[in-house]
């Protein structure tokens, strides 16, 4: 068996990035992700990679853009208010079709909010977040081990589709310690012929998102949408627990899915056929899993969504269900986390 070590989610993400071949990290301090920036400050120079503490989140994401345009694996991390600032750069990265990994260890909002864990940035992460018709690939880990694993997936998907990827965690996941088996180091990264490396032996490369000629931008947007359709078709991921026989299906992601899992077991003990559908990709949302369930189920199935927000993923569940089953919801954000007892009470009432 592989050796297990204890690490916080923030550190596990940092170590995964180093092992996944991240060449460049730029960040700016913000709680509750500071351990990740500090970890990268320590580890990146040990591996002869680049760490920069940027003057702002705007600068950090633009530095990532430069490193990514250079063909290198690049990453930044922050928490909710800082991620809002990064939206400018994320839109440019999406528009220039540049890969990168962005980690959001979410805290309560809106505004400065506070530093307690929350899942209130779901809309921002899954709808694009910045200006224009674009999406980021959004991955939602629910444990320290999964946070570590999804960094590798995030970089790989981001390179494959030339689109920014986001790890959407929360303050709980970032701060808590769990046993972890670290992955081996990544070798043989994909070649990037589009990268800006100097035009020796080839025609000059241009990294841009500006299309002034008539019709040019529309053509580009159509191509982007085709790419997003491909991602939707191929990359939906979720975890299902007791989905085969369940009549009440809880839907939750990240930290809240761990609480939902406990609720499912409690319901089972009471003789209720309960299950859990945990989206691992938030974009693309695993809508096909809902389609399967609704097609298969003869008997009535109902869904219960719980989030550390006031109902954001809820909208994607309703879109996937499209009126074919009841969808109920319970959520809290800004201080409290929906508890097992609160959720049970609402389901059983």
């Amino acid at each position: 068996m592989s050796k297990k070590i204890l690490m916080t989610g923030n550190e596990a993400i940092g170590e995964a990035a180093v092992r996944a071949g991240c060449d460049f990290y730029a960040g700016y301090p913000i709680t509750p992700q500071n351990e990740l920036t500090a970890y990268m400050a320590k580890r990146m120079p040990e591996e002869n990679r680049v760490f920069v503490q940027a003057e702002s989140e705007l600068a950090a994401i633009s530095m990532v853009m430069g490193a990514s345009a250079s063909g290198r694996r690049a990453m930044t991390s922050s928490s909710s208010p800082g991620i809002s600032l990064k939206q400018e750069g994320i839109s440019y990265l999406a528009g220039a079709q540049l890969p990168c990994l962005i980690v959001n260890i979410m805290r309560g909002g809106p505004g400065l909010g506070n530093i307690v864990p929350a899942q209130s940035d779901y809309f921002q992460a899954t709808r694009g977040g910045g200006h224009g018709d674009y999406h980021c690939i959004v991955l939602a880990p629910c444990s320290v081990q999964e946070a570590h694993n999804l960094v590798f997936s995030g970089f790989a998907l981001s390179d494959k589709y030339r689109a920014p990827a986001i790890i959407l965690g929360d303050g709980m996941l970032g701060q808590m310690m769990e046993p972890l088996v670290v992955h081996s180091k990544k070798k043989n990264l994909s070649t990037k012929p589009w990268a800006l490396t100097g035009c020796k032996g080839r025609r000059p490369n241009i990294v841009k998102s500006f299309y002034m000629q008539e019709g040019g931008l529309e053509e580009f947007n159509k191509a982007l949408q085709k790419k997003y359709a491909r991602i939707k078709e191929k990359e939906q991921r979720f975890e299902g627990i007791h989905l085969d026989d369940s009549e009440i299906i809880l839907v939750a992601y990240g930290t809240q899915a761990r609480i939902a899992r406990v609720v499912v077991e409690a319901l089972r003990k009471k003789g209720k056929k309960a299950g859990l559908l945990r989206p691992v990709t938030l974009w693309p949302f695993p809508a096909d899993a809902f389609e399967e369930l609704l097609k298969k189920k003869r008997k009535k199935v109902r869904f219960f969504v719980t989030e550390m927000s006031y109902g954001q993923m809820l909208e994607d569940v309703r879109l996937a269900v499209n009126g074919r089953a009841a969808v109920d919801f319970y959520g809290r954000a800004g201080g409290g986390i929906p508890t097992e007892e609160e959720i049970l009470r609402r389901i059983l009432q």
């Binding site: 600068a59 950090a60 633009s62 530095m63 400018e88 440019y92 035009c199 241009i206 841009k208």
Partner: peptide, 14 residues
Amino acid sequence: FDCCEAAHGRALAV
């Protein structure tokens, strides 16, 4: 030669 766009004001960060 090779060129990169930057968002308004972010050229030196890129």
